[in-house]
Design a protein around this nucleic acid. Structure first.
Lengths: 230, 230
DNA sequence: GTAGACATATGTGTTGACAGAATAACCGAA
DNA sequence: TTCGGTTATTCTGTCAACACATATGTCTAC
């Protein structure tokens, strides 16, 4: 699992900064000052700049010459773009997975769905993280099962992280139940090794998730346009 | 069109190295020595390393800690992965373009196709480049017409460049004629503003192109496994 | 003759410092 | 008071040098 060079400062910075952006510690629109950020992480500007160049390719920051870098600001348009691409790509993943998944992989996926179900019926405390993990785990497993390295990379390393920028805090359990039902439907199609059904079920699930996410984004709407500077 | 920072050395190096890799000047599997490459391009190692980190994210080189970077080696498996992803993404682009394309954009696209047609009937000399350009232009225009920034970036900046690694020298005109026919079919669907038909026509075209490319790859098979070192 | 260990050398990772550009602050005039 | 110009400072881009890890080559022991 050691991704390329895991020991270098640039690599650690790349992952730390990715997490910081996705967790909101580096707020959207934040102007990134290389000296300040380097001092905060206790490193020199060299490795930091290398990490920033990678973040640029991952679309997490935007850079312009002699003007510095800014954390990307999520927009409804970009959310729509992500979901449109995600719908087709995850549909493809489900289609491929339907023919490729082994019994062991199917069992593991079913375990995850059952775990998801239990979480939903469980107590209120600490559900959000567990449910979020369960959902991510479901899609992650299916992407892996496609055995398409490019598809896996696009989904797991580019789209899923980007989506975390839009994660909302307020989602009720009725929507969660709906998601679980859709997961079960996808799982059923995968068990039947039915590519077309799996693709369609997954595409419908993503479209449904898009509607939920968009709704939550509008109700929450905690976008602060002030471009704070670290 | 100025992509981010166009004036910096790191940016120029990024584009130069991208071209060098896609043109084969930096052969697949080549071990990249930072001092040597920096000297060749007349720059320091700083900007070069920043460019290399971006190339890593673009999947054009692979890096491992304290071992340096190597130019990616194209494999039939990766070609299959690219085409599988490309088929769905270009299908999506065509579907979106069918409802969004203006009359002007359609006219420009039709012009391109007619130009493509003339090139096919023209003389032998210098057809390859013109035909390759015409083909790329066709897909490029449709991607742009989707008005989906993420989709445009994935296709134009990531998949199309990667495909150039597999470009073959030997392709006969009968295959070219087939491609033109498929282009005309996609154009026809776009003119009718028929999303489903456009998507299907484009997906079939990509699948057909995959077959052509795979065939050419097997017949050509000019893969040299020796990992030369610059 | 071969295997293992040591020494050399090349290369990557990192740092600090310098030059040019852009932003910010300041001052003066209308 | 406000607008324009000028100065000063901060920041980005770039470079050269240092430290450490890895690879290479040689030498000795078996």
């Amino acid at each position: 699992m050691r991704d390329a060079d895991s020991g270098t400062l640039a690599e650690q910075l790349f992952h730390s900064l990715t997490e910081a952006i996705l967790l909101g510690e580096l707020a959207p629109g934040t102007k990134i000052s290389e000296p300040i950020l380097a001092q905060r992480y206790g490193v020199s500007r060299g490795p930091l700049r290398e990490a920033l160049h990678r973040l640029q390719e991952r679309r997490l920051i935007v850079r312009s010459a002699n003007h510095g870098a800014r954390v990307i600001v999520p927009t409804p348009q970009m959310l729509a773009s992500i979901f449109a691409v995600r719908e087709t790509l995850e549909g493809l993943a489900a289609k491929e997975a339907a023919t490729l998944m082994s019994d062991d992989e199917l069992a593991a996926l079913a375990d995850g769905v059952r775990c998801h179900e239990r979480e939903l019926q469980g107590s209120e405390a600490g559900r959000h993280n567990a449910l979020g993990k369960a959902d991510e785990d479901f899609h992650f497993r299916i992407a892996q099962a496609s055995q398409n390295p490019l598809l896996i990379d696009l989904l797991c390393n580019q789209l899923y992280p980007l989506l975390r920028l839009y994660r909302s805090r307020n989602d009720n359990s009725s929507l969660r139940k709906r998601a679980l039902t859709e997961h079960q439907r996808v799982l059923s199609a995968l068990r039947d090794h039915d590519p077309e059904m799996a693709e369609l079920a997954m595409k419908r699930h993503i479209a449904s998730a898009k509607a939920r996410r968009t709704m939550a984004l509008q109700s929450g709407s905690d976008l602060d346009p002030e471009t704070e500077k670290i």
